[in-house]
Computed example of a mutant assay.
Amino acid sequence: MPASLFTPYKLNDTLTLNNRILMAPLTRCMADDDLVPTQTMADYYARRADAGLIISEATIIRPDGQGYVNTPGLYTQAQVDGWKVVTKAVHDKGGKIFAQLWHTGRVAHPFFFGEGNGEVLSASNIGIEGTIPRNRELMYQQPKAATGEDITQLVADYATAADNALKAGFDGVEIHGANGYLIDQFLHYSCNNRTDEYGESPENMARFAIEVVDGIVAKIGHERTAIRLSPGAYFNMEPDSRDRAVFDYLLKQLESRQLAFIHLGIFDDAMEFDYLDGKASAYLRKHYNQTLVGVGSYTAETGNKAIEANEFDLLAIGRAFIANPDYVSKVRRGEELTAYDDAMLAELV
């Protein structure tokens, strides 16, 4: 049994986790048509409350942030009330849960927020090719570069969503700044060609992410604020060696803010990036000395070894939690895990 995984972990003076296993955010498209969390979602998360911390499926901060069908929101009272049922179910089982706050940026589609009710926003007017997952007939749209006024409103909306998260009973929030979505679109040269105070230099390109962090911290405190980052461009993003300087700067700024944690956003941490001198997790550990969450095709055994080698402090598990609602107890007892299969995505167990 990998003992280190079951050691309690003190995030800060406000939050202590029962173990070092996190349930990674997993987009399941379980909300109703008004993007309100359902009783099915409450049951789903409650069955996984043995995790040291659950990070919710990505949850949009406002209507024009939606890029996938039936993804929940945190911007209406009905959505807040729906999440209250979910968080209570988790807390009643002794668990803790953070809301992952999301705006998909150029991956959004007007189909979801209504033609004429807003434009697809991004760092720049650089789009991507392809179709919307689960809605293959919908082609990605050309985005509009967010104006200064747009950015100010986005920062405010992130902060409001964080405040709504705590009103809904969440223990904190994780800002989704990874995986090619809106915040990440400002952090990479392949999709940020701005020439104003949000582009060109590392300091400028990191500005939006920092403003979102500071806006949320001002609302709910640094102890309950975390962020997910993808220093290595790999998903809906082209790599650029200049990105390294952006993340060097951003990580230095984030360290001074004493967040709950930084969570790596990557599908497979075996990937290496020339401009990061290897794995993204090793790069984060080298440049960030506070709590780090590792993820990316780890098993309990390999993740435990990485924790013991000080590669990161907490381990996020994704697909295995879909296949094994009782993942933590199975690992603790050394039982065989049910293998994940894509067909399980149609099941909400």
Rank of each mutant, 00 (worst) to 15 (best):
G199F: 13
L292T: 00
N236E: 08
R47A: 15
I307F: 01
D184T: 04
Y189W: 01
G116T: 05
A24Q: 13
P72F: 04
Y158E: 01
A159Y: 02
K279R: 14
S297H: 07
Y249P: 09
A145T: 05
I61A: 12
N236G: 02
A99S: 15
S329P: 05
S201H: 11
M41D: 00
M205S: 08
G232P: 01
D342E: 15
F261A: 14
R242H: 08
G199P: 07
G127S: 12
G169V: 06
G334I: 12
A300D: 06
D43W: 02
T87E: 08
N135V: 06
G73C: 10
F6S: 12
L337G: 10
F261R: 03
F312P: 10
V120C: 11
L22K: 14
A51F: 12
H91L: 11
D171P: 00
Q258V: 03
G118L: 04
N70S: 08
R332Q: 15
Y9K: 04
V349F: 06
A145M: 07
G296W: 01
R319P: 00
A270K: 13
S201V: 03
I266R: 11
Y189H: 14
Y9N: 02
A42Q: 06
G114N: 06
A306E: 13
R333S: 14
D171F: 13
G221Y: 09
L276S: 03
A282P: 02
Q253D: 12
Y198H: 11
H103R: 12
R28N: 11
K10T: 11
A316V: 02
V155N: 02
Y75N: 13
A159S: 11
M41S: 00
F6H: 03
G180W: 02
Y198C: 01
Q141F: 05
Q290S: 15
D274F: 08
